[in-house]
Amino acid sequence: MSSPAVAVVDAQTPGNVGTIARAMKNFGFEELLLIDPPELDRDGEAYGYAGQAREDVLPRAREITLGELVSEFHTVAFTSVTNEDESKHVRFPYVTPAELADELAPIESRTALVFGRERVGLTNDELARMDQICAIPASASYPSLNLGQAATVALYELRDLAIEDTQLPERPRAEQREIEGFYDHFEQLLEAVDHPPEKRQKTMRLIRRLIGRAHPTGREITTLRGVIRRAIDRRDD
């Protein structure tokens, strides 16, 4: 598989962007995506903290929107706060970085590892748009990591995805646009079967998490979309 991209949402300080770029260089990651970034002055903190990443990773960083991110990539959001049971679906179910590494190794897809703000991380609305949730295990008495720490730990755990050739056979994953199309069809199905409007948003989050963990192939997504279309058509008859 290709090395995952690293996306940073609304970083407050240039120094943390530089720290993440350095960690990427340490562990073999190359593609840095920035959403609402601070100004990155070549004579400022970002380039000062980036080490050798100032030569390639940082200057090649691409600024995009959150909407572009979720439409182009299979997204894995990193958070230090989780829901501990299945009654809530914004931050559950989640995997650890080590579990994520094993899961992504055989998957052939464009994946983005998404990190949020220094103080509050990713919002619930942003997390609801992500395909998977990943949390770094830490002491219950102080589980919060700062942005640079979280990215460094996560990228270390995932380094085999970037710097070592896996011996596992690759399993092609459906294009992200095909999966987003499936979500559109599933929303239409909820409307067609008169699913309670107040439950639709939560149901879509649950479905997104389910599909995010399944890593379906293109044929599987096409089949599911065909079944949904037939169900909608029958409902309309």
Rank of each mutant, 00 (worst) to 15 (best):
F115C: 02
A154T: 10
P143V: 06
F186C: 02
A138S: 14
T152H: 11
G181D: 09
V153H: 02
P137T: 06
D160W: 06
Q132Y: 03
P137N: 08
V153L: 13
A140E: 13
L189P: 13
V153P: 01
A154W: 00
A162M: 05
A154G: 01
M130C: 15
R200G: 05
R129V: 07
H185G: 02
M130I: 09
P137H: 05
D125S: 15
F115L: 03
L168T: 14
F182M: 13
L168I: 11
L127V: 06
R117F: 10
T123K: 07
L145N: 10
G181S: 13
V153R: 06
Q167F: 07
I136M: 09
F182E: 05
G121E: 00
R159F: 03
T152W: 07
A138N: 12
Q176G: 03
A138D: 09
G121M: 00
P172A: 10
P172K: 09
A162I: 00
D131G: 07
Q188T: 13
G181I: 00
R200M: 10
L168D: 12
A174H: 05
P169Y: 00
A138Y: 08
V153Q: 05
D125H: 13
P196N: 04
Y183C: 01
Q167L: 14
Q201P: 05
R129L: 15
Y142Q: 08
L127F: 07
F186W: 09
Q176S: 02
P172H: 08
V193T: 12
L158V: 01
A135Y: 02
R173H: 14
L127N: 06
L127G: 06
E164M: 08
L155F: 01
I179N: 00
E175Q: 11
F115H: 02
Q188S: 15
A154C: 09
Y156S: 01
E175I: 00
Y183W: 05
V120H: 14
E198N: 11
I136S: 08
L189Q: 11
P197G: 11
A154H: 01
P137V: 10
Q149K: 02
E164Y: 09
Q201F: 11
H185D: 13
